[in-house]
Design a protein around this nucleic acid. Structure first.
Length: 257
DNA sequence: GCGACAG
DNA sequence: ATCTTGTCGC
């Protein structure tokens, strides 16, 4: 028998190729066509947080914010145990199941708060096989999804080169972006300067049911700081200062149930 | 051949 | 992913 891990990788690659066929790269919602996103009222964000030294237990976050005010409508935080290890290119198999669970839970308890679009911490089509976590979640939930990565994944010739760095240096103001073009000439994402105060871009790509240009425009409007507010709220809930009851407490509470 | 490589 | 302190500027 071949190495179990190699078998698993092959199986995962086949599954990604199959699910890739279901990704919709078009704007399927009316609000996506509107210059000011008229009709968009709820934006969501999902993320997993880890504690130092433990990479199998995590806190799965889902927040829903009002648009365009970015006020919290809903937040959920639950301790989960992950089954798959982290492997670049296969994030979906590790993180999608608990995040889908959180969406399922929202549908059961507060269906009217279901977000109209979901920001995902990681890439969408900007991926080795054009099927990153944001596509994975998009296809399996059928929600419009936007992938926002905070670091560059090296995809088909797109690397942290001097050329890439000079393109970053050319992003002068918030909203400026440049395409991430593959060796084969396909634009799989865009590097976006999302705030005036940070020169480091975020890497935006299509997850599902949205075009790249709409995804970039929407991401820009959801950024008060470098990271889009729905994702930043996820991170803040866990690590941020200020609350009387911190999120680790909340997670500890839930894990005892 | 080896290393790079979202979270 | 995870952490933490200081430091600078408005």
């Amino acid at each position: 028998m071949a190495a179990p891990e190699a078998e698993l990788v092959l199986k995962w690659e086949r599954e990604q190729a199959l699910l890739r066929e279901s990704v919709k790269e078009e704007d399927t919602e009316d609000w996506q066509r509107s210059p000011d996103f008229n009709g968009l009222e709820r934006v969501g964000g999902v993320d997993l947080s880890f504690i130092k030294g433990d990479d199998i237990n995590a806190c799965a976050h889902l927040v829903v914010l009002t648009y365009p005010q970015m006020k919290v409508l809903y937040e959920d935080c639950k301790m989960v145990t992950l089954n798959a290890p982290y492997m670049a290119g296969f994030l979906g198999f590790r993180e999608a199941p608990p995040l889908l669970q959180a969406l399922e839970n929202l549908k059961n308890v507060q269906p009217h708060l279901m977000p109209q679009v979901l920001f995902v911490d990681g890439n969408g089509l900007f991926h080795y096989r054009e099927f990153g976590l944001a596509c994975h979640l998009g296809v399996l939930s059928d929600l419009p999804c936007v992938g926002v990565a905070k670091n560059l994944l090296h995809v088909e010739g797109v690397v942290r080169s001097e050329e890439h760095q000079s393109q970053i240096n050319a992003l002068k103001k918030s909203g400026d972006s440049f395409p991430l073009t593959t060796a084969s000439g396909r634009v799989l994402g865009k590097a976006l300067r999302s705030s005036q105060s940070s020169i480091k871009p975020v890497y935006v790509s299509v997850g599902h049911r949205i075009t790249l240009d709409t995804a970039v425009r929407l991401t820009h409007t959801c950024c008060l700081y470098r990271v889009p507010e729905p994702i930043r709220q996820d991170l803040r809930v866990f690590w941020g200062p200020g609350e009387v009851l911190t999120s680790p407490d909340i997670c500890a509470f839930f894990s005892c149930l």
